[in-house]
Structures are given as C-alpha cells and as structure tokens.
C-alpha cells in the first residue's frame, strides 16, 4: 500500500510517500512495524496522540482495520482555515 506523510511527520521521516508491504491488520500494527524499521520512524510515531491517520483519504482511528486499504496517511492535527 502507499503510505503518505505530511507536515512535520514528513519532515521527520524524510519522505512524502512510500510503498510499504505489510501484513499488519490494523493501523496501530502498521505503526509498530514502521517504528521498528529505523529511529526516524520511532521519532515520528513516538506520541500517537499528536498524530492523525486517514485511510483512503478518510479520517480513521488507529485501531481501524487495514483490509482493502490502498492509501494510508499520517499527519499532525490539521490547521486549516
């Protein structure tokens, strides 16, 4: 699936988008997999309360299932307006 990062999450991880092969069942499991990869992921995902997630461009919770999802995005709380 495609994993996208925005704002300081993108800056901390160092890429805007990447392809990830995963067998994670939920978003939270995917986050754990990513955190184990490299320190920059662990740093970006250190505090999940500071992050939001969207699945196929819809806001979701971290315990949401990933089955059928093509695009996951991680970002800080939004500041529109």
């Amino acid at each position: 699936m495609d994993v996208l990062y925005f704002a300081w999450v993108r800056e901390r991880i160092g890429v805007a988008k990447e392809q990830v092969e995963t067998s994670a069942v939920t978003v939270a499991e995917l986050v754990e997999e990513l955190k184990e990869r490299e320190p920059r992921y662990a740093a970006a995902f250190a505090d999940l309360s500071a992050l939001r997630v969207a699945l196929d461009q819809e806001l979701a919770e971290f315990d949401a299932p990933l089955a059928g999802v093509r695009e996951v995005a991680f970002f800080p709380p939004m500041t529109g307006g």
């Binding site: 925005f6 704002a7 529109g80 307006g81």
Partner: peptide, 13 residues
C-alpha cells in the same frame, strides 16, 4: 469555519 479549521487536511508553517 469550525470544521475547516480541524477537519480539512491543511498544515501551516
């Protein structure tokens, strides 16, 4: 306006 502030995916730097 209330929803644009926190539910539209924009980030300001």
């Amino acid at each position: 306006m209330d929803y644009l502030k926190s539910r539209a995916p924009f980030w300001k730097k």
